[in-house]
C-alpha cells in the first residue's frame, strides 16, 4: 500500500469559490434540469385532461382564448428584446422592454382570471371545471411567479445591477418566461381546440 501524501491546509480559500464563467454554466444546467422536472408536472396535467375529457371539450370563448394566447406570445418577444438590450448595455431599452413584458403578462392574467374564470363553467362543474381550472390555475401561478421575477429584475436593473458581460439574473428570468410561455403553447390547444363540443 502506497503512502498517502501529507495534507496541506490551503493558505486561502479563494479557490473554493467557483469562477463566474463556471458558476454560470452550472446555473444554466441547473435551471434546465428544473425545467425538465416542471415539464413532468405539466405533462401530468395534460394527461389528466386527455384521460378525463377524452375527445370532447367544454364550450369556451374562442375569441378570448385567441387574445390571451397572442398577448402571451407577444410578451416573449419583448422579453427577448430586454435580454438582447442588456447584452448590448442599452439600459433604457432593457428596462422599458421588461416593463412591457410584465404588463403583457398581467394582461394575460386578467384575461384568464378576470374573464375566462368568470364564464359559465365553475371549478366544481365535473371534470370540465376541475381540469380547466386546474390547468389554467397552475399555469397562472407560474405566470405570476414570472411577473414577480421580471419586476425584481427590473428593480435591480434600475439600481444599476447587471452588465453586458454579467447578467445571469436577466437570462434566468428570460428563459423562465419563455418556458412558461411554451407551456401555454401546449395548454391552449388542449383546452380550446382539441376534441369536439358536445351539445346537449
Amino acid at each position: 500500500m502506497s503512502v498517502a501524501t501529507p495534507y496541506v491546509e490551503p493558505a486561502h480559500h479563494e479557490h473554493h469559490e467557483l469562477p463566474y464563467s463556471e458558476q454560470l454554466r452550472n446555473n444554466r444546467l441547473g435551471l434546465w434540469l428544473f425545467f425538465t422536472s416542471e415539464a413532468f408536472m405539466f405533462i401530468g396535467l395534460l394527461s389528466s385532461r386527455f384521460y378525463l375529457w377524452g375527445n370532447t371539450r367544454p364550450d369556451l370563448d374562442q375569441t378570448l382564448g385567441l387574445i390571451v394566447t397572442s398577448v402571451l406570445l407577444v410578451s416573449s418577444f419583448f422579453m427577448n428584446r430586454a435580454e438582447t438590450a442588456i447584452a448590448h448595455d442599452d439600459r433604457p431599452e432593457f428596462l422599458r422592454s421588461l416593463l412591457i413584458t410584465a404588463a403583457l403578462g398581467i394582461a394575460f392574467l386578467v384575461g384568464v382570471v378576470g374573464f375566462e374564470w368568470q364564464g359559465h363553467i365553475g371549478p366544481s362543474d365535473g371534470a370540465y371545471g376541475a381540469v380547466l381550472f386546474g390547468m389554467t390555475g397552475m399555469h397562472a401561478l407560474h405566470v405570476v411567479s414570472g411577473v414577480i421575477f421580471i419586476l425584481i429584475v427590473w428593480n435591480n436593473g434600475r439600481k444599476g445591477s447587471f452588465s453586458a458581460e454579467r447578467h445571469w439574473g436577466v437570462e434566468a428570468c428570460a428563459i423562465w418566461w419563455h418556458y412558461v410561455d411554451l407551456v401555454w403553447v401546449f395548454f391552449y390547444p388542449a383546452l380550446y381546440l382539441m376534441g369536439h363540443v358536445v351539445h346537449g
Binding site: S48, Y51, L52, T56, P58, I121, G126, A130, V198
Partner: peptide, 16 residues
C-alpha cells in the same frame, strides 16, 4: 352537479 350535467361534462375518475 346539475350544472355539470347541463354542460355535458364527463365525471372525475379515481383511477386517474
Amino acid at each position: 352537479t346539475e350544472h355539470a350535467i347541463e354542460l355535458n361534462s364527463p365525471p372525475g375518475n379515481v383511477i386517474l
